[in-house]
């Protein structure tokens, strides 16, 4: 295992528009997330939280600065290579779960692996393992509308975890879930980090940020404060 961070943002800025209308969504943000680390990003709306997440996952490109995922600078990658890197290394969990309603839980989790070109039998085995990990093996054959909101969110997490993804990006993953169910979601992210993944969690809920090793406060597109990492007692 290397000591390089799984994701590194180095002096990253993102400006929307140009000239006098230009708006800086992110200004000179530098942030490393190492394997095993769960970093929470907090801040008022419009402070750049989601922009930061999109840049870290290669869904958006910075105006200046560099994003490095698993040692590969994203600026040098073609659109095709970037898409490949996203699929293989990055798992996304969003508030609106984006599960495909016509596919079963297992098929939803298999999908990214099938897109990677993994054979169906293998993809199914990996999907079952990921569903097992989130405690949902028994609903693998059900459709999203047949399971609870909390279960749907866990399926979305299984989909983000399937395969060898080491970078997990979660944008308000607890959405409208009640407190115990939201705690379950954080428990899963935490366990995945303890097993060696790196996760960036955007949340406006202090209680969920409390699960992180480090909490970064964004304000007006810049890092205003951050808690020191807790001594590793995991």
């Amino acid at each position: 295992m290397s000591f390089d961070p799984v994701v590194r943002l180095a002096g990253v800025s993102r400006v929307h528009g140009d000239g006098p209308q230009a708006v800086a969504a992110l200004r000179e943000v530098s942030l490393d997330v190492a394997a095993g680390e769960l970093v929470a990003v907090m801040g008022p709306s419009g402070s750049g939280k989601s922009t930061l997440l999109n840049l870290a996952g290669g869904l958006d490109r910075p105006t200046s600065g560099e994003v490095v995922v698993e040692g590969r600078p994203l600026s040098g990658l073609s659109a095709g290579d970037l898409a490949g890197l996203r699929r293989r290394h990055v798992g996304y969990v969003f508030q609106d779960l984006n599960l495909i309603p016509s596919l079963t839980a297992a098929e939803n989790v298999m999908l990214p692996r099938e897109l990677d070109g993994v054979r169906m039998g293998q993809a199914r085995r990996e999907a079952m393992a990921a569903l097992e990990e989130v405690g949902l093996a028994e609903v693998a054959g059900r459709f999203p509308e047949e399971i609870s909101g909390g279960q749907r969110q866990r399926v979305a997490i299984a989909r983000a975890l399937v395969g060898e993804r080491r970078l997990i990006l979660a944008d308000e993953p607890t959405g409208a879930l009640d407190t115990p169910t939201g705690d379950d979601v954080l428990q899963l992210l935490r366990a995945r980090c303890d097993a060696g993944a790196a996760a960036l969690l955007v949340t406006h809920e202090p209680r969920y940020a409390g699960w992180a090793d480090r909490v970064v406060f964004l304000r007006d597109g810049a890092i205003a404060d951050s808690t020191l990492p807790l001594e590793s007692a995991r």
Binding site: Q187, A209, F217, L228, L230
Partner: peptide, 20 residues
């Protein structure tokens, strides 16, 4: 406010870890 926010978040992290 900022100093307190960092300190309280730290407390929250420690409590969460204790609970886990």
């Amino acid at each position: 406010i900022q100093a307190q926010r960092v300190a309280t978040m730290r407390t929250l992290q420690e409590l969460t870890r204790a609970k886990r």
